[in-house]
Design a protein around this nucleic acid. Sequence first.
DNA 1: AAGATTCCCAACCGCATTTCG
DNA 2: ACGAAATGCGGTTGGGAATCT
Length: 273
Amino acid sequence: MVRTPSFDKNGMKKGAWSPEEDNKLRAYIHRYGHWNWRELPKYAGLSRCGKSCRLRWMNYLRPNVKRGKYTKAEDDLIMELHEKLGNKWSAIAAKLPGRTDNEIKNHWHTHLKKRIKENQSTFELKQKAIQISQSLANLELQSHESPRSEINHVTDEFGSKDVNDEIYQQILESSPLSSQELSSSDFSSSMTPDYALLSDKNWVGEDSMSSSESFEESVRNFWIEPAFEDFSYQQNEFSSNLAEGESMFPCFLDHGDDSIEWFHQILEELPGK
DNA sequence: AAGATTCCCAACCGCATTTCG
DNA sequence: ACGAAATGCGGTTGGGAATCT
């Protein structure tokens, strides 16, 4: 985990610090302080450059440097501060007593960034599901006139021809034109499966909804975002969770003209609202 | 058991900013 | 005001440990 010690062209030692070196540096600074990092190693009896000594002291030897596992409170604070400040590690470290900027940076890259990414992709996937549902709802309204061309118009934006055909079939099968219309009292029950997807435990809530973008903002944004190019993949992944023969958007397909209200209802009920 | 891969973190490097003469 | 040196910061890397195949 540590670099093999070596010497640079000036004869300065590089790489991992030995306990003896640590002791020399610690003892010197305790006695004289760090008045000049460049000169310090010479007087402390170290074959290190000043920069290396400074780093070793600041990140490891300095008193009160806290090591070991991060608490949830610390993680939350780092994520919150990172959202506000970006990669200003020293500014973030200033708010976490005992933690160094280097350590926080490492922790971010190895743990927290990953967590945010995961949460974000879940969030985006679900946003896109809503987007498609909305588009299909609009189609439903228009399909009384020229269903096939309109469906192609929207689905072409989202995915391959195969996907279009599949969606087209689903719409045809589920359309009020070809199937029974449900009464409005059936609305909530048929909505549940989709909404469950939106509000399950993986939903970006609590610590996972950590980006500075509020949910409302996200929703606003996706209406003006260009069509997503990776939809076919996401749709496959998304729909693979569905039982065979189950539509991805049964509620929309079942409710025709009620779809817009349904969509607004979802927005009202979403976590973070 | 052993080789390959991934994870993790201490330390390095280069650049920006601050300080000093 | 200016240039050089010192310091600080953030991105990147090296390599041991842990995990996987």
